[in-house]
Design a protein around this nucleic acid. Sequence first.
DNA 1: CGACACATGTAACACGTTACATGATTTG
DNA 2: CAAATCATGTAACGTGTTACATGTGTCG
Lengths: 173, 173
Amino acid sequence: MLRYVVLGLLGAEPRYGYELKAVFEAFLGGTWPLNIGQVYTTLTRLERDGLVVAEVVPQDQTPDRKVYALTEAGRAELAAWLGAVEVGPIRLRDEFFLRIAVRSLTDPIGASELIHAQRAAHLETLADLVVTQEDPGLHPSTTLLLEGAMLRVEADLRWLEVAESRLKMWPEP
Amino acid sequence: MLRYVVLGLLGAEPRYGYELKAVFEAFLGGTWPLNIGQVYTTLTRLERDGLVVAEVVPQDQTPDRKVYALTEAGRAELAAWLGAVEVGPIRLRDEFFLRIAVRSLTDPIGASELIHAQRAAHLETLADLVVTQEDPGLHPSTTLLLEGAMLRVEADLRWLEVAESRLKMWPEP
DNA sequence: CGACACATGTAACACGTTACATGATTTG
DNA sequence: CAAATCATGTAACGTGTTACATGTGTCG
């Protein structure tokens, strides 16, 4: 998936790894911090698969850059990904849900405490998102992404409410 | 994460692999289909890490079962996971968001089409969830999980609305 | 001089995931 | 007889992730 976002960023404009890290994080509004090494591994793999090609651009003063651009295959792969629609059963692979659900399986009381803690964390997350979004320099796509994140967090907060009220009238296991 | 859900299920009661697959899928309300092989790889890894121990229980008629139970270390690991709270920046590692955001980066018009298709898929998902939830035999935890999934899908639908209206007044790249 | 920005990379691991292999027993 | 159920496993891959290595130029 990182793969495809990188592909997408390169689709807009060729870039080199070091630059890509910054662009990526800015695009994600800082919600996906990236280890710089990961950028290079990803680029290497994309190159291995023939989706991108590199061109070394020498610099005076600073180290050389390896600027990556999409190949035809890369463009095709990106288009395929962009055109796909997520269908079928959603996968509840979210630690957040599962932790509370698993906990409620054997320890409903402890689950309640967890819910309170998680709510506090979520509210903080929400506040952070609001702050992040205040930056006027954000790309519109980034603003959109952040909005999605906020809607999700709000949904999760609502779920915590539901979970709590459910747990009160719970049959002991 | 699968790791921990398995650990959690074993924490409630020792089980063998084949059984675990069914229990797992039932617990997740069918939102996380599991390849049976994956259960065994997961159990092998848990055993390697000393979190579970297996006991072979011979059957007449059917093949022997390897019943797994938590060790002390396993119980500790599970407790640690169950007690953790998700803090810090949420990671927007959702293909759903990213695909539309990346697409809006260079092709806002195409993004609109994608939004329509995705909305249809989401509505179907929502309908599926409703049907699934009608099963009276569901474990309360599962019902709760499904409710979370529904709240999320609803949030995502709302996001699609937002995305669409934003895209209409978009500066060409 | 030390810290930091610039720039690239590798080795190694964990985890989710699939495809494939094996074999007994029951059921249509 | 074929298919399905019960039951366990392995080899292999892709991807995300980290820790570590290396080197130059600039700024305080």
